[in-house]
Nucleic acid binder design. Structure first.
Lengths: 160, 160
DNA sequence: TCAAAACAGTTTCCTAGTAAACAATTTCAT
DNA sequence: ATGAAATTGTTTACTAGGAAACTGTTTTGA
């Protein structure tokens, strides 16, 4: 993106952003946009969206997790989780079980195809997580994550 | 919780999040959600959304800014900016001007009503920015903003 | 015991934001 | 000059995600 991007950049640089360069809200939005762009560059070809990606990983780590707990953990609303799960079900990657001890709830687990899918793309997943961090040093990365957790009130209970 | 508590239920605290607690992507999403929640608590009563808030401020700071430059600065797509601007126009807060020197473009500025609106709610705006930061110390805040800028490739190395 | 309340998930409808095709204007290469 | 290409913004059609009302199930309390 040579000459034209340069011109755009110049125009953009002239904008007075003094309200925004110091706004945590705006900067987290920038970070979010960056994350999405990187995600689609790295993993878009598998037809997986960011929310789906973390949903799948979390079910894999926590077989039998209840759907509502999953939604709460990922900070999405139950209504949206219903849609995510149905899409995974249609693809044959996730299995829904209604347990006898509480027939209101839904317990989730990966199917064999779901586990195969993760395994098949594990390299790309790992590469993606690495590329997300590429612009920071390791020390900066540790600090950024700690501050993001503190800012968002995320109690990082268990150290692993 | 008598006899049937044999099956250990996976509650939120017990969820294995080892893929996510170290994912910058997930943590930026948490920060984004936190920011939105705080925004609606502080400013929701004025019928203003986060994107609208920064749009209005930026036009106020940069009278005559072109619509496309504004979109690029805020990292939203031109198609969406068209809708945001139309909403402001309908409310009588923003004015669109087609300049003679390039009749493809649109130049934006606040109306008197727009300036009055900002002035009227300036206290709430300031209070909101402060409450966004409340969970961090001043030093942590400076570090967080610096790292977010670096992570998201936000050039703006002009100190103000 | 049994109606009322609470809970877990779903459905319906709505908003924020994007992608792609489009129209109008300007620029660029002959 | 002039047709091709690039640009600026808009329209249309779509996806991610949320709010509120709803269904079915479990718990609670008199």
């Amino acid at each position: 993106m040579p000459a034209s991007a340069l011109k755009e950049q110049l125009t953009e640089d002239a904008v007075d952003m003094s309200d925004l360069t110091n706004s945590v809200g705006f900067l987290t939005r920038l970070a979010q946009v960056k994350t999405y762009e990187t995600f689609f560059e790295d993993l878009g070809e598998y037809g997986l969206r960011p929310g789906e990606y973390s949903t799948l990983l979390l079910i894999g780590r926590n077989p039998g997790i209840r759907q509502g707990v999953l939604a709460q953990t990922l900070r999405v609303k139950p209504a949206h989780m219903t849609k995510l799960i149905r899409a995974f079900e249609d693809r044959g990657h996730v299995e829904r079980t209604i347990p006898d001890h509480d027939r209101r709830s839904v317990e989730l687990s990966l199917t064999q195809a779901g586990r195969d899918f993760i395994e098949k793309h594990r390299t790309a997943f790992t590469k993606h997580e690495a590329s997300l961090k590429s612009s920071l040093t390791e020390a900066e990365l540790v600090t950024l994550k700690r501050l993001l957790r503190k800012y968002s009130g995320f109690a990082a209970e268990e150290e692993n």
